[in-house]
Amino acid sequence: MGPASLLKFGLLRYASAGWNPRPGALRTVIRHVGSSTSIEIADQPLEVEPTIAQLRKTPLLLWAGDRGFDPLGPEARGALAAWMRAGGLLLIDSSEGRADAGFDASVRREMAAILPDAPLTRIGADHVLFKSFYLVRGGLGRMVILDYLEGATLDGRLAAIYCRNDLQGAWAVDSLGQPQFETTPGGISQREMSERFGVNLVLYATCTDYKADQAHVKALLGRRAWRVDE
C-alpha cells in the first residue's frame, strides 16, 4: 500500500553499455498496465544491478541488450539464480534485430550458467501468458526473427521469458508519443500485440496461471457435493 509499495518493473543494469538499448520504451508498457488494469504500478522503471541487495527491490525484471557482453561473475549469476528461484520473473529482450548475434550468444551462455536445470525451451502458443489479460496472437516485437518465445520454467511457472524480436523496439515512442520504429511485417497490429503482450507479462507476473484456472472454475465449483438436493 502507498507509493513505496507500487509494483515496479525493473531494468537490469548488467554491463557498462548496451543494457538499455531502448530508453523509455518500458514506460509504454507501464502506462498501458496502469491505465487498463487494476494493477498499481510505479511510473518509472527501476534500474537494478545483479546483486542480492538490488534484486530484492522487485520480482519483475527486464534484461535487454543489443550486443554481446562479458560473462557475468559468479556472484551476479548466483544472485540472479536465487532471485528467480525466490519468485522473480525475468523478461529477456534482444534488440539486435538479427539472428545469431552477440547478445543472443551471451544470454544463452549466462542462462545456461544461471539455471542449468531449467533450459530455455519454446513457449507454446496456448500458454496462459498469451491470455492473462489480452488475447495475444501473431508475431511480437519490432521484427519477427522467431515466431515464438522461449522460456525457462521453475516449479511450474515461467521464471524467464526470452524474446529475440526486439519487443522494446515495438514499445519505443518518441517525445510526441509516436512509434520510434516500424514493426514488420505486421505493422500496427504487430505493435498493438506487442504492447498487449507487455501487459500480459505483468499480469502473468502477478497472477501466474490464474487465467488457466478460470477454464476449470465451473468444474471445480461443481465437484463438491455440498448441498442437499431438495
Partner: peptide, 20 residues
C-alpha cells in the same frame, strides 16, 4: 481464485472479444 484485473476506472481500447 478471483482477481479483479480491471475496474471501471481502467480503460482499454481493445474490444471485449480481444480481452481475456
Amino acid at each position: 481464485s478471483f482477481f479483479i484485473l480491471r475496474t471501471q476506472e481502467d480503460i482499454t481500447q481493445a474490444p471485449q472479444s480481444e480481452l481475456s
